[in-house]
Design a binder for these strands. Structure first.
Lengths: 338, 338
DNA sequence: GTGAAAGCGCTAACAT
DNA sequence: ATGTTAGCGCTTTCAC
């Protein structure tokens, strides 16, 4: 069943059918009704490929997810998927490893699939202007931005917390309780990811509190995986370095850390406080419940998609939204033992 | 840059370029090389829409995810996405609520997007033959099958554990330790989902052990959400019903249950054993570590996609794969107190 | 081995 | 208000 068959069925021309299908005003009510009912009867479904071929762009929004091991993304993906559906668009998702280049993947995808827009999840924050030019449809970076770059802000959008400041706030919380020996559990020291940003926040909070950073307290897991975080924490403990608190750059890693501490006979928060950033649902159900700075995931996903369609449909220019994380007080932090 | 430009660039016809691009044998090596290098130079990217228009089918595989609150799916989605990418296809993902009809969504999607295949995640297990006919491309049900139906098995594929038997095994484990007062934490009693299947397995294990099921020990959460599972467990405790163990139909719900028990002063496994089915990574990091029947998620995702492409590319007929869950012994079960 | 040409289903001028 | 028609970029007979 094509538009042609439909036209024949209704005794009108294809262009008329096309007009009805695309909600054009210049069709008589009678004809419109007739076509519409024929569509229902015949359960005609338009061919998207033909449509995008002539329009040179489709209803497809690409979602490029980089570094899939972070469970935080799962929730955001859900929200983004839902919002894209709700707007009547299609989500084409591609996952790439944390070592791959999401801008390259995005550029290829854009041209292959004739995307109308892109959402990038978990990418780098150091695009060059030249790299950026490779992608020509509107796109929004969700959960990160070009923090340390100097890009024209008008050529893309972003929705993110300020990772560095969030980390500061988390570490401030520990310092406020009197901790001075605070370890940092991170993925990689300079992976150009949120791990690095949050590590910097950790360092500046220490600095602000007059605490000299101790190399021995930098626990590098090598990835965002729980297994690696667990091992890193065990290594930290085994190293004999003294610490009364851990700031973990992610909830999942913090939960692994708590387990490692427990397995080594250290109880949280009595023997060691643990604070993190993310706000996973799971964190509310571990014991002790994790104290964490929650990223407003639903809001971030919704806002990202809203901005994207605003730009795509010409309602607004690119914009950069900073969302505020919210401290969710659990039971994983306490003042240090004397 | 279109195939036409490319042809002009190489001084050959479009059909020749097309032949090269599609790896046809009837092209002279010299011309083939010339075209290939031109493709590289110009970084030409084929237009998928045009391609699918003429082929009347695309390289897009639809993934319909029903009921998104189950974190178990997140992992499977990752694997499936990765495998589809690896095979050179595109994944188009659509999420629908647990109350929506995935076959309807799939059928619409198939025709709109000219899909070449479908993976259904978390659907019903009671399709009628007529419903099934609405979808005309190969598809595979991942993590469920037409358990209680009577469909011709040749018209679709499936990869799943036997939910009912897995539940039996889990409950057997509890019975083996001497438990007789075993509660079942489920989503819904008859929601035509794995919740119901696993509940049946629970009942048959009880039966096999000569234990009469007690209505008071059926904890219905209403959803797969942790919050609902937490409340259901608290209600169960508050009801005064006596039980020494809980079989939870999912890991996430079990973790919520453990929290609820703890918040009511009951320690796991001393005061109550908890066993579940799923095998989330998280479950290894909660305390006590959860004893659970692990679904081989990676294997299930890979197998689903492998089957799909086997059928799509005509290498094999539909098949139904039963995978075996593996008991991961944690520390959440123990014999009942005297 | 290569090219010319038809046509996939649709939209958008351009006519009427 | 409606119809006619020319492509969108590609694959695929069918000639040569």
């Amino acid at each position: 069943m094509t538009i042609k068959d439909l036209a024949k069925l209704c005794g009108v021309s294809v262009s008329t059918v096309s007009r009805v299908l695309n909600d054009r005003p210049d069709v008589s009510p009678a004809v419109r009704e007739a076509v519409l009912s024929a569509v229902r009867e015949s359960n005609y479904v338009p061919n998207n490929s033909a449509r995008s071929l002539v329009l040179t762009s489709s209803d497809a929004v690409g979602l490029v997810v980089r570094g899939v091991s972070n469970p935080f993304y799962s929730d955001i993906i859900k929200v983004i998927g839902r919002e894209i559906d709700a707007a009547g668009y299609t989500m084409v998702m591609q996952q790439i490893s944390s070592s791959a280049d999401e801008l390259e993947a995005a550029a290829l995808m854009e041209r292959e699939k004739k995307l109308c827009g892109l959402v990038l999840l978990g990418g780098r924050w150091d695009y060059s202007e030249e790299e950026l030019r490779r992608i020509t449809v509107p796109f929004v970076c969700c959960s990160y931005t070009n923090t340390f770059g100097s890009l024209p802000r008008g050529c893309y959008s972003s929705v993110t917390i300020e990772d560095s400041r969030a980390a500061e706030r988390a570490v401030d919380e520990l310092c406020g309780l009197g901790h001075t020996r605070i370890a940092c559990l991170m993925a990689e020291r300079d992976d150009r990811s949120i791990s690095e940003l949050r590590y910097h926040g950790y360092l500046s909070s220490l600095g602000a509190h007059g605490i000299a950073p101790d190399e021995a307290l930098a626990a590098v897991a090598g990835s965002f995986d729980m297994a690696d975080a667990y091992e890193a924490t065990r290594r930290l403990i085994a190293s004999g370095a003294e610490f009364t608190a851990i700031f973990s750059i992610s909830d999942a890693m913090a939960i692994a850390a708590i387990k490692a501490l427990a397995d080594c006979g250290r109880e949280v928060p009595r023997d060691c406080s643990v604070i993190a950033i993310d706000g996973l649902t799971f964190s509310e159900y571990v014991r002790p419940t994790l104290t964490t700075l929650c990223q407003p995931m639903a809001g971030m996903g919704e806002e990202s998609v809203r901005i994207l369609f605003d730009v795509i449909e010409g309602r607004s220019a690119n914009r950069h939204v900073i969302v505020e994380p919210v401290l969710r007080r659990g039971a994983s932090i306490a003042p240090p033992k004397k």
